[in-house]
Design a protein around this nucleic acid. Structure first.
Lengths: 160, 160
DNA sequence: GATACCTGATTGACACGTCAATGTTAGGCG
DNA sequence: CGCCTAACATTGACGTGTCAATCAGGTATC
C-alpha cells in the first residue's frame, strides 16, 4: 500500500500479459472483420453505419449525429460514407433546415446488405468470442473492458 | 450440459459484453498508438520491427524471419520496411547466400529511435493498461486472452 | 448589411493493411 | 544443360484511418 503506481519498470509477467492481450484482441478483430467481409461483402465499419442508419427514423441521419452515435471523427465518417455511397449502400442529401448539414440515407440495397449480414455476423461473434469463454470469463471480460473504458475516459478528458 | 453451443441468438448481455470488449480494446490500441506516435514519432508497427531487429545478431534479419517473428504477412512487412527505409530507420540488403532473400538492417538512427521510444512506451502501457486493472483483473485478462488465442488458433488451422 | 466568427462537412496527403499479380532466384530432374 | 516448380520478396490497387486545411452556410455584432 505504500507503493505509488506507475513508477517501476514492467515485470516480465506484466509485459507478457500486455502482449498476449493486445495481440489477441487484435487477432480477434481481424478474424471478425475477415468473416464479415467474406460472408457478406461488407466491412465492420460498413456494418456499424448500416445498423445505425437502419434504426433511425426514416432510415436517415445527420452526419454529425451518426458520427457521435458510433464514436467516429467526422473526417473518418465522411470518407467512409463516400465509399459506401459509391457502392450504392446509401445516398447523401443536404439536411432539411440547415444547408450546411448532410444527411445519410439508407438505400434498399444498403438495408438488404445489413439484413443479409446480421445473422452470419452474430454467428461469428458467438463462435469466435462468446463460445470460446466460460460464463465466468465472459463476465470477467466485460468487467475488465468496462474498467479499461472508464480508465481511458478518465485519462482523456477529465477537464473537458 | 445438454445444450449445444452456438445455436441460439445472442442474449442482450452477451451482445453488450461483446461490444464493450471489442470497442474498448480498439480504443486502447488507438490510445497506445497515439501516445507512441506523439511522444516518439514512430508507429506501433515501427516499434515492433525496430525491437525485433535490435535483438537480432548484427541487427539484421531476413525478411521472412522477421515476418514470422512478428506474425505479419510478407506483403505487409515489405510495405512497412519500404516506409521505414525511406525514413532512414533501416536499410535493405540482399541476403548472403541466397540472392532471392532480403535482409533488413537497423541503422544507427533506427536504433536511436527505439532507445528513445522504449521508456515512454512502457510507461504508456503501464498507465493505460496495467495500472488500470487490479492484479486479479490483470491475471484474468491474461487468462481470457490466452483462451481466445488458443480458440482462434484451433478454428483457423486444425488441419494445417 | 458588412464583418467576423462559429459550425458542419469535405478534401488531400499520407500511413497502414489485405489481396492478387508479378518478378527473380534456387533446386530438382529429365 | 534446360525446363519446371517452389520459395522469397515486391508491387499495385484499393479500403481504411488520422491530421491539417479548406469550404460553405449560419449567427452575432456593430
Amino acid at each position: 500500500m505504500s507503493q505509488r503506481k506507475g513508477r517501476s519498470a514492467l515485470t516480465r509477467t506484466e509485459l507478457d500479459s500486455w502482449r498476449v492481450f493486445i495481440e489477441t484482441t487484435e487477432d480477434l478483430r481481424t478474424a471478425l472483420a475477415g468473416r464479415l467481409q467474406a460472408e457478406s461483402g461488407i466491412s465492420v465499419g460498413d456494418y456499424r453505419v448500416l445498423l445505425e442508419l437502419s434504426e433511425a427514423p426514416g432510415r436517415r441521419l445527420r452526419s454529425s449525429h451518426l458520427a457521435d452515435a458510433i464514436g467516429w471523427e467526422r473526417s473518418r465518417l465522411s470518407h467512409h460514407l463516400g465509399r459506401m455511397e459509391k457502392r450504392g449502400l446509401l445516398t447523401r442529401d443536404t439536411a432539411a433546415g440547415d444547408n450546411r448539414g448532410a444527411e445519410a440515407v439508407l438505400t434498399d440495397e444498403g438495408h438488404d446488405a445489413l439484413r443479409r449480414s446480421s445473422v452470419p455476423h452474430f454467428h461469428a461473434i458467438r463462435e469466435l468470442f462468446i463460445d470460446a469463454l466460460t460464463p465466468g470469463q465472459l463476465a470477467a471480460a466485460r468487467d475488465i473492458a468496462e474498467t479499461l473504458r472508464d480508465h481511458l475516459a478518465g485519462l482523456k478528458g477529465p477537464g473537458d
